[in-house]
Nucleic acid binder design. Sequence first.
DNA 1: ATATTATGTCAGTGATGTTGACATAATATC
DNA 2: GATATTATGTCAACATCACTGACATAATAT
Lengths: 162, 162
Amino acid sequence: MQRKLPHSNLYLREEELRRGIELLYFAYRDFTRDPDAILAETGFGRAHHRVLYFVGRNPGTTVSGLLSLLRITKQSLSRVLGQLVEEGYVKQESGVEDRRQRLLYLTDKGETFEKELFATQRQRVAEAYKKAGPEAVSGFWEVLLNIVNEEERDTVLSQIEK
Amino acid sequence: MQRKLPHSNLYLREEELRRGIELLYFAYRDFTRDPDAILAETGFGRAHHRVLYFVGRNPGTTVSGLLSLLRITKQSLSRVLGQLVEEGYVKQESGVEDRRQRLLYLTDKGETFEKELFATQRQRVAEAYKKAGPEAVSGFWEVLLNIVNEEERDTVLSQIEK
DNA sequence: ATATTATGTCAGTGATGTTGACATAATATC
DNA sequence: GATATTATGTCAACATCACTGACATAATAT
């Protein structure tokens, strides 16, 4: 019986870490399911959702702004963004100070669609917040923020606090 | 000033939801980065990691067990699982009660590799737990569990509590 | 005048997922 | 014992989303 404590502690520690990993996996899996289903109807995918989301959050952002936020390559973005522009969800305007830049905005159509996609995740997250309570929500934010790469926490927060 | 409260509440509510959504996105993005880098060296991808992970967690699980846990199709799994078996990371044994079943286990090689992949995420999550503290960790679990589809929470917990 | 930057585009590739159809062997049921 | 169901595997075809590397253009900075 004397050996019980140290063993239990190590065991718990490993279990606690695996619990976080697994919850993160399953939550992310289900969290992307609802919008994916809507997107599939329109012929878009998750990549289109991300662009719609972040352009909606950062009206007037540039192509390179999106590239560094999403950490994908120009070619990956360009295909997705091109489709969104062509089908009238996103509009581009030349920068006023630097006319090389393409400032990106959602059109009305884009905003409506983004709201529809957001609504599914909003519902899920709001429900989870409500069930867990405000203190749990703070903990949720804090742990997640610390999981993000240290160098990028500012970017994440500047997304959020705008 | 009288209008401030209701407006603030609505605004905060939306912001709080978007904060959760964004943190989930960025945390997941970075959380998968370290193992992805190791996997790339061996020619494997994230799908291989998931199989290694869950076979490691559930020694003796069957093909259909994995299918329903991962929610992918047989064809997707079969390609990935086939490679893992062929390269000696996973071994299959016929079921004793039902000989149609293939019971899946990690080989020593598979266990070693899974540990290596796990170590990177372990480090990241342990650090985040440490910085945020135990109460935050509880909140983190609780919110994430409630984000998972209701029907699947048992599955998630039975993964965890084993 | 020259270098750098922001963006776009071409061609090729790879990983991961999908659907649908079909095959085999083992087990369960009538 | 005949038949249905189940667990697994496999084939062919396809879509999405990422990648690399190279090159082009226009605008801005030095």
